[in-house]
C-alpha cells in the first residue's frame, strides 16, 4: 500500500522548567516515534490526555517542528525542504473545539471565502458565494448559514463549517484532532458519519486523534495506541480490538463499561495514577500502572515487535 505521510523517529520535548543553575526539565511529549499513514485510509491515534497524541498530530500536520526526526508527505521532507503553498493546502487540520477554530468576528461566508481564495485568488464575489454555498451543501448545512456569525451556530454546525473550510483547499491528508469530543452524543454520530462519507468519497487519508474507542472502532482502518509519548501498540483496527496485545490497550478496552464482550479478552484494569511526562518511568513506561508488570519491565526496552501480520506491540507478556 502507498504511504502518504510518514513520520520517522520523531522527537519533541517541551521545556517544563529552567533554572539558572539546575538542569532544564523537559516534557517528553513525543519520544522517538515512527508512524505511517497509508493512502485512502484512516489511522486512529488513541491515547489519554498527556500521551502526546495532539503534539504528534501537529507535527504530522506540518505546524510544529519536531526536535529530531522527519515528516515525509508523499516523499517530501516538509520540515527540511520547507512547505510550499501547494503542499500546505494538501494537509489540513480539524480542531477539537469549533468555538476557537472559527474567528468570531467573521461570517461563515468570509471564513470559507478565505480558504476558497487560496485556491482561486481572482474569484468573483458571486462565484465565491456559490462556491461557499456548495461547500456548505457538502457538509449538509443550509445555505442561509453563510451569512451568520459562528456564535449563531450550534456546536455541531460549527464543526461542519470547520470541516467545510478544510475541504475547500482540496486536501489529501486531514488531521482530525478529537473532532467530536467537544460535542453532544447525538451530534457526535452525525459528524462521524460525515467524516466517514467524505473520506470515502474524496479518498482522503486521515489521522483521527481520539480517546473515545467507540468512534475509533467505527471510523479507523488502523490504530496506533500512544502512552506517555510512545506508541505501544499498532495495527489494523480489527486486529487490535479483537486480538489486543498490549496491557495498556487492554485496560482501555475494559474501562469502557459497554465495550462488547469480544473485545474484553483480558479483564485487566490499570492501577494508580498516570506518571508525569517530565520524569517518565524507566523501561516500559506503563510498568507503574500495569497490572501484569514484572520485575524486568523496569528495564525493558520498549520496542514494537510484530506479533501477527501488520500488528505490532511493545509488550511481550500479554498472552
Amino acid at each position: 500500500m502507498k504511504t502518504v505521510v510518514e513520520g520517522r523517529d520523531i522527537k519533541k520535548y517541551f521545556i517544563a522548567s529552567k533554572s539558572l543553575f539546575g538542569k532544564t526539565e523537559y516534557v517528553r511529549a513525543v519520544d522517538h516515534v515512527d508512524i505511517e499513514i497509508y493512502d485512502n485510509s484512516v489511522l486512529a491515534l488513541v491515547g489519554e490526555s498527556g500521551s502526546g497524541k495532539t503534539t504528534l498530530g501537529r507535527i504530522l500536520a506540518g505546524i510544529l517542528k519536531p526536535d529530531e526526526g522527519s515528516v515525509l508527505f508523499k516523499g517530501i521532507d516538509i520540515y527540511r525542504d520547507g512547505l510550499t503553498r501547494d503542499i500546505r493546502h494538501k494537509i489540513q487540520v480539524i480542531f477539537q473545539n469549533p468555538d476557537s477554530s472559527l474567528n468570531p468576528r467573521m461570517r461563515i461566508l468570509d471564513i470559507l471565502g478565505e480558504a476558497i481564495k487560496e485556491i482561486e485568488p481572482t474569484i468573483s464575489k458571486d462565484d465565491l458565494e456559490d462556491r461557499a454555498a456548495q461547500l456548505l451543501e457538502n457538509v449538509n448545512l443550509h445555505v442561509d448559514h453563510l451569512y451568520k456569525y459562528p456564535h449563531e451556530l450550534s456546536g455541531g454546525e460549527k464543526q461542519r463549517v470547520a470541516i467545510a473550510r478544510a475541504l475547500a483547499v482540496n486536501p489529501e491528508f486531514i488531521v482530525a484532532d478529537e473532532p467530536v469530543s467537544a460535542l453532544d452524543i447525538s451530534i457526535r454520530a452525525q459528524i462521524i458519519n460525515l467524516l466517514n462519507s467524505i473520506q470515502k468519497r474524496l479518498r482522503i487519508s486521515m489521522l483521527y486523534i481520539a480517546h473515545d474507542l467507540r468512534t475509533v472502532w467505527n471510523i479507523s482502518d488502523y490504530v496506533a495506541v500512544m502512552y506517555l509519548g510512545k506508541i505501544v501498540e499498532y495495527g489494523e483496527t480489527e486486529k487490535v480490538f479483537r486480538n489486543v496485545a498490549h496491557p495498556y490497550t487492554a485496560t482501555l478496552l475494559t474501562s469502557a463499561p459497554l465495550m462488547p464482550k469480544e473485545f474484553r479478552k483480558h479483564e485487566i484494569y490499570p492501577v494508580g495514577e498516570p506518571p508525569s511526562l517530565i520524569d517518565p518511568p524507566s523501561g516500559c513506561r506503563f510498568h507503574t500502572r500495569c497490572p501484569i508488570a514484572r520485575e524486568e519491565c523496569k528495564k525493558l526496552d520498549m520496542k514494537l515487535e510484530e506479533i501477527e501480520d501488520g500488528h505490532y506491540t511493545a509488550c511481550p507478556f500479554l498472552k
Partner: peptide, 12 residues
Amino acid sequence: MDYVLAAKILGK
C-alpha cells in the same frame, strides 16, 4: 487561538 492556526494551515 485555533482560528489563527487554521489560517496558517491554509497558507495565509
